[in-house]
Amino acid sequence: MSRVDDLRGTLAAVDRSRAALYAVLFAMVAFYLAPLESGLATSIKTEAGFRATTPYAPPPLGEFTLAAWQVAFDRLSQGLINSLLMAIPATVLSALLGSLSAYGLTNLDWRGQTGVLVLFVAGVFLPYQSVLVPLRQFWSAVDLPSLIPLGFVGSYEGLITLSLTHAAYGIPICTVLFRSYYATLDEEMIEAARLDGASAATIYRRIVLPLSVPIFAVTLIYQFTQVWNDLLFAIVLVTDPSNQVVTVALNQLQGSFVNQYNLQMAGAFVAALPTLVVYVLFGEQFAKGVAGES
């Protein structure tokens, strides 16, 4: 490590202008944060305030208000709850199924597994448009309340439908993420357990699953963000307004408060808050999930 650092140090010394490097780095920071910064600044201004000042400037004296955040939160709170109710089960389900299938396709050795794997990997790249019409047909033919005779199913039908859909379409990417991790597990350790007579299920439960904590973290974080952020499935599958998720609610808020940019920006932040918190806390895991997609 120190050798690498030495070499990097040498390179750095030879570099003609270290200052220029940092100037570019900070310019890029400004570029990536500008939309968020001006959004945040706008969200705490009054309407007169954001019309009179430049977007990135902090609110002038007397034009500071949290009213927009208040309205946005009131408008979106049901959506936030619905999104959580929908996204958490979907995420957990697809991560579990992804872990199982990755184990069956990676650590257990059998002919033809590459063929099955290809079908999973190709599923990662599916444009959802190419399944939307059948999906709508499928769910309109399925009568969830009579399939699952539990009291709450009727009033949450849209959310359950959406959650199951996300869980199913999340399996391919979760499998890919888990597979890349399981391929690095110590082959000899698993083989030794196998020779000791452990069944595939025992090996999974006792060895593979306990070692999977880091990749579960990566997958859960990445997949939660994906499911939370989706709009397309939500507008196609959820018709009941009480089951509306936050992305749909935000889109409607944007449509009904044209030109009230402070309100739109506050709404955008409220809807993004859970994913932002997850990203700030688990940025490393998110980056791994993103990189694993390729």
């Binding site: 990536y32 944060l33 963000t225 944007q254 932040f269 994913t275 932002l276 998110f286 980056a287």
Partner: peptide, 11 residues
């Protein structure tokens, strides 16, 4: 630099 990737397209 990666932050925008964590945001919804709606946002």
């Amino acid at each position: 630099y990666l932050l925008p990737m964590s945001l919804s397209f709606v946002v």
